[in-house]
Amino acid sequence: MPVPLYQAKAEFFRTLGHPVRIQVLELLQAGPCSVRDMLAAIEVESSNMSQQLAVLRRAGIVTATREGATVVYALSSGDVAELLRAARRILTDMITGQEELLAELRGADAEEPRSG
């Protein structure tokens, strides 16, 4: 029996739901990158990086190619980069909305007389 689409989407987002995996994907938006370069850019143990890359590779979100002794990772699709850009836009909108609400709240606080 096939997995319902909503369940497959939930599993996909769970796969993305780790800070190191997000950092890797953000880094790979600029293009293919070796594990050594990723470790230089992301402060994480080598074993943890390998584990997170394996999760992304099994899910088909990144690809790995061997160039001699070096393994180079890349995003499997430009859609992954677009998803990350969309998440950034959504978060920016959310934070902007919160800042506007905070400004309104501060304005209301300034208008209320202080008792004391």
Rank of each mutant, 00 (worst) to 15 (best):
3 V>G: 06
6 Y>C: 06
8 A>Q: 10
9 K>D: 14
11 E>L: 11
12 F>R: 03
12 F>N: 09
18 H>E: 12
18 H>A: 04
19 P>K: 01
21 R>V: 05
22 I>L: 15
22 I>V: 15
23 Q>D: 14
23 Q>F: 05
24 V>M: 07
25 L>G: 04
26 E>G: 03
28 L>P: 07
29 Q>G: 09
31 G>P: 02
31 G>Y: 05
31 G>K: 11
34 S>Y: 08
36 R>M: 04
36 R>P: 04
38 M>K: 02
40 A>D: 15
40 A>L: 12
43 E>P: 09
49 M>V: 07
53 L>M: 12
54 A>L: 13
55 V>W: 11
57 R>L: 13
57 R>N: 11
59 A>V: 07
61 I>S: 00
62 V>D: 00
62 V>H: 02
63 T>I: 05
63 T>D: 09
65 T>P: 02
65 T>W: 01
67 E>D: 15
68 G>L: 14
69 A>F: 11
69 A>V: 15
73 Y>E: 08
75 L>G: 03
76 S>R: 10
76 S>V: 00
78 G>M: 10
79 D>W: 05
83 L>K: 00
85 R>I: 06
85 R>Q: 13
86 A>M: 11
86 A>K: 09
86 A>R: 13
87 A>S: 09
91 L>T: 07
93 D>A: 15
95 I>G: 03
95 I>M: 11
96 T>K: 04
96 T>S: 14
98 Q>V: 12
100 E>T: 11
101 L>V: 13
102 L>C: 09
107 G>D: 13
109 D>Y: 07
113 P>T: 04
115 S>H: 07
